[in-house]
Amino acid sequence: MGFAKWNNFWRGAIRSKGLIGLAIPGLLFVIVFYYLPMLGVVVAFKDFNFSDGLFGSKWVGLQNFKFFFQSDAAFQVTRNTILLNLSFIIITNVLSLVFALLLVGLSRRAVKVFQTTLFFPYFLSWVVVSYVTYALLNPQLGVLNHLLENFGFDQVNWYLESKFWPYILSLAFLWKNIGYSTLIFYTGLLGIDKSYYEAASIDGANKWQQMTKISLPLLTSLITLITLLQVGKIFYSDFGMFYFLTADSGALYQTTDVIDTYVFRALRVSGDIGMASAVGLYQALVGFLLVVGVNALVRKFNKDNAIF
Rank of each mutant, 00 (worst) to 15 (best):
G142W: 12
I214N: 04
K112C: 00
L28T: 10
L189Y: 01
G21E: 03
L141K: 13
S215C: 06
I178T: 01
K194L: 06
S170E: 09
F301L: 14
G105W: 00
L267P: 01
F119C: 05
V94D: 00
Y253P: 03
G271Y: 12
I223Y: 05
L95C: 06
P139V: 14
M211K: 07
K207E: 05
G12P: 00
S87P: 02
N49I: 06
R79K: 15
G250P: 07
Q115T: 06
A44N: 03
S162N: 12
V60W: 02
L83I: 15
N302K: 14
F29G: 06
K194H: 11
P217S: 10
L147K: 05
P121Q: 09
Y196C: 05
R268S: 14
I14L: 09
F301P: 00
G188M: 07
Y167C: 03
F9W: 09
T117Y: 03
I20F: 11
R108L: 08
Q209M: 12
L54F: 02
Q209H: 11
S51E: 07
Y196I: 05
S181G: 03
F65S: 08
L54M: 15
N177T: 11
F88P: 03
I202V: 15
Q76R: 14
G26L: 05
W6C: 02
Q210A: 12
L83V: 15
F264D: 07
V77Q: 10
Y34G: 01
S16Q: 11
Y134L: 15
L169H: 06
R265S: 11
L103H: 02
L103V: 04
D52Q: 12
E149C: 02
G188W: 06
G287A: 10
G105R: 10
L148V: 10
F173Y: 15
N64M: 12
K66R: 13
T117H: 01
